[in-house]
Amino acid sequence: MTQQGTHQGPYYYVPSPSYWPLVGALALLLLASGAVLWVNSYSPGPLVVFAGFAVLIFMMAGWFRTVIRESEGGLYNKRVDSSFRWAMSWFIFSEVMFFSAFFGALFYARVLSVPDLASVESQMLWPDFSAIWPNAGPGFKGNFSPMEAMGIPAINTLLLLSSGATLTWAHWGLLKNQRTQLTLGLILTIVLGLIFIGLQAYEYSHAYSAMNLKLTTGIYGTTFYMLTGFHGLHVTIGVTMLIVMLFRVLAGHFKPDHHFAFEGVAWYWHFVDVVWLILFVVVYWL
């Protein structure tokens, strides 16, 4: 659209050289090698990981700042905007597939491996094991209490569902250029998200201290914590992005017809929401 003064093609914005990708690659190198050292108990591990995080945050701040300036500077036309839309959709699709690996593991344990371990032949290896769910496997000694669906998980479900609504309400505000509605909706969403994270943290600590339900509690603990943990991680990322959006809104960014960053975050948030619904049903309820 408004690309006067550049040598770019009139129809698409091609960014000029940037060193952020290189910084990003360095960040991941540090993160990965630090993590390897850490899990193998070599002393510099944590240090390297934190260095990696620092570089990563530096990279994201710098990279996003560049993008935001370009966007606010009017360099992105409709074509660029629809590129972002495609990209965000496919990114979310890749996240769906990531979660499906873990849901698949849960399904497999419940439908295949646990019953198989209790089959007639398996009696030879695991006498008196029976396939009831929740189950921590034939080698697990001790007791644990499984998670109940009602109580905190149900409250969390309500929280996330209403946060989806408040976010949509905020979006309507943006479309109608009612900035107060937009700001208010965003703040509400963020608060709901934070309460969700807080409740989940409480739930974890309660499970560890009072229910003897740990990550190491056989396949039940394993799938429970990995699924809810990855979901929690995504909620945290989502809240962080919402907070960034809030700052941008306060800085006066976004127009009713040009606000893909906001929409992308909203899509992400709804995706996290849907994952939770599935989690609630298959992890807590059934």
């Binding site: 593991a105 491996s113 189950n135 496997g137 697990f140 990550l215 056989g218 603990g221």
Partner: peptide, 18 residues
């Protein structure tokens, strides 16, 4: 490997074949 989960260990109810 490092955090004691049992996705792939029969004694914890998992399965290497998973």
């Amino acid at each position: 490997r490092h955090f004691g989960t049992t996705f792939f260990s029969a004694s914890g109810g998992g399965d290497p074949v998973l």
